[in-house]
Amino acid sequence: MPAAPNPPVPPVPSVPSHPFDPADAPVSVLGLGAMGTALAGALLAAGHPVTVWNRSAARADGLVARGARRADSPAAAVAASPLVIVCVTDYAIADTILADATIPGTDTWAGRTLVNLTSDTPERSRETAGWAARHGIPYLDGAIMVPTPVVGTANGFVLYSGSPAAFDEHGATLRAFGPNAPFLGEEHGLAALYDLGMLDFFYTALAGLVHAFGVVGADGVSAAEFLPFANVIFGILPDIMAGTAAAIDAGAYPGEQDNLTMEAAGIEHIVTAAKTRGLDVGVLEAIKSVTDRAIARGHGGDSFASTIEVIRSA
């Protein structure tokens, strides 16, 4: 059976050199998982002409019903708009889509800006930025810091880094995802780095909260009953965080008010009580290991911030 002929390459329409009015700037969204669908929906709600593409074309049906245009290929999606947004599971998938969208021998990306809102590491962000630079594509890397229902609301929060000129031109359009859209700087890996740091704090804090509910729950106290007392800790965290940040940046960890030896003893009490109640203590033992190693290095009289010395040299 003879091979099917290659489909004709769609012409790449010209893009005006002046910035678009952010109120009606066309945008293409590649990748329609839960987050990509939320992004496209927010753009539609803000009044933007939106072109969408997904490998499983049926994922676009709901957006098409709301007024989006369905592209039949990544290249067609890129051709449709001056601003192209990719949001998929990881950079391996994103790189494949971008390769498929880049037709050799054509100016596929002429006049286009690429915004990658895929989550991954700073290293992967820089690799894709290098690919974009080799193809002459203005590139922004981003990190979405809210769940899908919050995208497009007043609490929407997306971090950006990369091309300052691209952010200047398209920042107003990108704020369709939410008004909290800080530009962190020209180094492309910054958005992913901040993302990792914020999620590191979030997940370890959430693990601590769930474990605390487990400890009190083992003795019959419900999570709802204990929650107001957990909120007391939440209330004092901002001052503790500010002091910890200042100590780490200064490399000095005064412990006159609260030293690490005392903290380690308190952690040991929680470990003992949790084991007695048959609870998992893996997270607590990891914390205790860090404090014990810091004390062994001479930080027993210092504050908890001194554990950064162990974390940095693990």
Rank of each mutant, 00 (worst) to 15 (best):
N116P: 07
A38Y: 01
L44S: 01
W131Q: 10
D21L: 08
S125P: 01
A75T: 10
A92N: 11
P104N: 10
F20A: 12
N54K: 05
P74Q: 02
L43K: 00
I93A: 14
D21N: 15
R59G: 04
S14G: 14
A65M: 06
V27A: 07
S81G: 05
L43C: 13
A94D: 03
G33H: 03
N54C: 05
Y91Q: 06
D100Q: 15
V27K: 01
A23Q: 11
A71W: 07
V27D: 02
P22K: 10
A45E: 12
R126E: 15
A132L: 10
A42G: 00
L39R: 00
D61R: 12
L114Y: 08
A58E: 14
A40C: 08
G47D: 07
R124P: 00
D90S: 10
A101V: 11
H135N: 14
T51Q: 05
L32G: 04
G111S: 11
R66H: 12
D107R: 14
V88L: 12
D120Q: 04
V86G: 06
T113G: 03
N116D: 14
I85F: 05
D107C: 06
A110R: 15
G130V: 05
V29M: 14
P26S: 09
P19T: 08
T121S: 15
V84S: 01
R69C: 06
I103F: 02
P13T: 06
S56A: 13
G33W: 01
H18L: 12
L83I: 11
L63I: 10
D72F: 02
E127W: 07
A75S: 11
V15M: 10
T96E: 13
T89G: 01
G136W: 09
W109H: 09
D107M: 07
R124V: 08
A65G: 15
I93Y: 00
G33Q: 03
A34K: 10
A129V: 12
H48A: 11
G31D: 02
A132W: 07
D95H: 14
G62A: 15
L114F: 10
P13D: 08
V50P: 00
P16L: 08
R134G: 13
D107W: 00
S81E: 03
R124G: 00
A57I: 07
S81M: 09
G41D: 14
T118G: 04
A79R: 14
R66E: 12
L98W: 05
V64M: 08
V15Y: 03
D90T: 11
D90G: 12
R59Y: 06
P16M: 10
E123R: 14
R66P: 01
I93R: 06
C87Y: 01
A65W: 09
A79E: 01
G111E: 09
L83N: 04
H135D: 04
P74W: 00
F20W: 15
A110C: 07
P22G: 09
D61S: 13
A45K: 14
P26H: 09
I85S: 03
A46I: 01
A65K: 13
Y91T: 11
G111V: 04
P82C: 10
L117D: 01
R66A: 15
V52H: 00
T51F: 06
A133K: 15
S14T: 13
A132K: 04
V88E: 02
S56E: 05
R70W: 04
A110G: 10
V78E: 01
W131P: 07
R126S: 12
